[in-house]
């Protein structure tokens, strides 16, 4: 009846009105709420799209091959994530840990790429201060990056805790992995949108004259 997000705690058999787990329900409500958060950030980007009065402009700085590679990394991390869950649900904690760590590493790789991209942009003269493109771009992708970072911490924590308390990664407690998985996939689908809306659909270059 009362297991409040206790990662390490073996839940008692819950009796809920809907038969659904409290924590899983909480996660879905949170994700619904986070849709509005990213929706507003994406709206900000779109409203100011093509409204920068000075450069650098998107077409001058974007490196589509690199970003495509980053998008691929996150897609693969979603695969490893779901494989981790499948392994844990089969009772295979060892492969569960391996896939979880793989997910976290792919996330780290994504973050390294993003860090490289950001610093490259800054050397090109694009900062949040310089124009609206910089402000909206860094805010949107920065908050996404923060979500990825949090996800990497969470994944690592699940693995570390499972080493301290093996029961947390038993098939019965696969929810611990399922929840971080839901979060991770959500971060992935947000990137699917950002990749298309921000990177592939660039505004037309401003007319000089």
């Amino acid at each position: 009846m009362q297991q409040a997000g206790a990662l390490g705690h073996t839940p008692e058999v819950e009796h809920t009105t809907t038969g659904l787990n409290h924590r899983k329900l909480l996660m879905w409500v949170f994700l619904a709420s986070d849709c509005l958060f990213f929706g507003t950030l994406i709206a900000t980007y779109l409203l100011y799209r093509g409204k920068s009065t000075v450069g650098p402009y998107p077409h001058e700085v974007f490196d589509i091959p690199l970003t495509s590679y980053s998008a691929f990394l996150l897609l693969m991390s979603s695969l490893t994530m779901v494989l981790a869950l499948a392994a844990v649900q089969r009772g295979n904690a060892k492969w569960g840990r391996i896939w979880l760590l793989a997910t976290a590493l792919l996330g780290c790789h994504f973050l390294v790429n993003q860090g490289w991209e950001f610093s490259h942009f800054v050397t090109e003269g694009l900062t949040p201060r310089v124009n609206l493109f910089g402000a909206t771009f860094f805010t949107l992708t920065g908050f996404h990056g923060a979500h990825v970072t949090l996800g990497v911490f969470w994944l690592t924590a699940v693995v570390v805790i499972s080493l301290l308390r093996p029961a947390t990664m038993s098939a019965k407690n696969s929810l611990n992995v399922e929840l971080v998985g839901l979060y991770w996939h959500f971060v992935d689908i947000v990137w699917i949108i950002i990749f298309t809306v921000v990177y592939l659909l660039q505004p037309a270059p401003p007319l000089h004259g």
Partner: peptide, 23 residues
């Protein structure tokens, strides 16, 4: 849960304007 995220973003942008000089 649906309306507050919008304000959160709006205020974050205001904070960035004030702290980091965005526009």
């Amino acid at each position: 849960v649906t309306a507050f995220p919008v304000l959160t973003v709006g205020m974050m942008l205001l904070l960035f304007d004030r702290l980091f000089g965005t526009h």
